[in-house]
């Protein structure tokens, strides 16, 4: 698979007054052509910041992001705006992502107008085509965002993202603001689109069950660092990192049990330590070393990468690559 997006050693720190928030620390992640990569983490883990960095909405402090082998900074300066055509986004809040004063047709056509594609007749036809692609009827075109439901609005946002036939779509929590039954419809829509158009996606969510359903690979983030990356089945069936295990137990549909209660302790929000592994304050396996040594991502056989220092102690069978 050819590399479409490469995120290399990316760092981003936000400063407000005296406090610093390290939103992204040495993030390495690649997305191949037509590949769906899931990014999971709690709020505040830096996953949305990473999305904004890739979209060029924030400037990175260090490291580099390359799209089709070309530096992002260069692409953003390029007057032809080709990058803006090839990478699109769908955000969490379907209503807030649309201009409330514009009709649905206007919003879907906007990317075409901005990039000077087609004339007004061909754009109109394209809008109807896109509405059909996301299973909305033609009457929707003349409506305003306030007249539609959350699920319909998210379909509109998806249609808008597809308007320019992008190679990569960044989906930042696209279903978490929706009802469960509507979530299923939108996830299905993403699956259909992916199958039909073969577009690559970075699919961000706090819910592992949703991400698992759609992704080829999953990256787990915590406090600005990547904890584990691997193929979806490996991550969900044999997670190496204790944090991934915690996430897994949170999204499974289980009855209360003593074991479950033990696990719940993992979910208490703790302060992120300045030194060592950020998860060490919550981790059941943490030892003194975890609080001292800076963590580093390590590759293991089975293509899984994990940043847990004690991975091999916890799983004696695990072989390093």
């Amino acid at each position: 698979m050819a590399q479409l997006l490469q995120i290399l050693d990316v760092n981003k720190t936000f400063k407000s007054g005296n406090s610093k928030v390290k939103a992204c620390q040495e993030i390495n992640l690649t997305i191949g052509e037509g590949e769906v990569v899931g990014l999971v983490g709690e709020s505040g883990s830096g996953k949305s910041t990473l999305a904004n960095l890739v979209l060029g909405l924030e400037k990175l402090d260090s490291g580099s992001i390359k799209f089709e082998g070309v530096e992002l900074e260069k692409l953003l300066k390029d007057k032809s705006k080709s990058f803006r055509r090839e990478v699109q986004a769908v955000f969490q809040h379907p209503l807030l992502s649309l201009d409330s004063r514009k009709t649905i047709a206007w919003s879907i056509a906007e990317p075409l107008v901005i990039n000077k594609i087609g004339n007004s007749a061909s754009r109109k036809a394209r809008v109807l085509e896109l509405l059909a692609a996301v299973a909305l009827d033609e009457g929707t075109a003349s409506k305003y965002p306030s007249q539609l439901s959350g699920g319909q609005l998210q379909r509109v946002n998806i249609a808008r993202a597809l308007a320019l036939e992008p190679k990569l779509i960044i989906c930042d929590e696209p279903v978490s603001a929706l009802d469960v039954s509507v979530q299923a419809q939108i996830v299905n829509l993403f699956l259909d689109i992916q199958k039909r158009l073969g577009v690559a996606m970075l699919f961000i969510s706090h819910d592992l069950a949703v991400v698992r359903h759609i992704s080829d690979r999953i990256a787990v983030m915590y406090a600005g660092k990547i904890m584990e990356i691997g193929d979806t089945d490996d991550i969900c069936e044999s997670p190496i990192h204790p944090y991934t295990q915690a996430l897994l137990s949170a999204s499974t549909f289980t009855e209360e049990s003593d074991e479950g209660r033990e696990k719940l302790k993992l979910f208490r929000r703790e302060e992120v330590p300045q030194k060592g592994c950020p998860f060490s304050t919550r981790c059941p396996h943490a030892i003194a070393l975890c609080r001292e040594e800076e963590i580093k991502i390590q590759s293991f056989a089975s293509n899984q990468e994990s940043s847990c220092l004690r991975a091999q102690e916890i799983f004696p069978n695990l072989a390093k690559k």
Binding site: A184, V187, L191, A209, R212
Partner: peptide
């Protein structure tokens, strides 16, 4: 039944449309 089945669960087959 719809409410229960439409939930993405960990034991479902992947990349298959959810129940709606």
């Amino acid at each position: 039944v719809n409410l229960i089945r439409s939930m993405p669960a960990m034991d479902q087959p992947r990349k298959v449309n959810l129940y709606t």
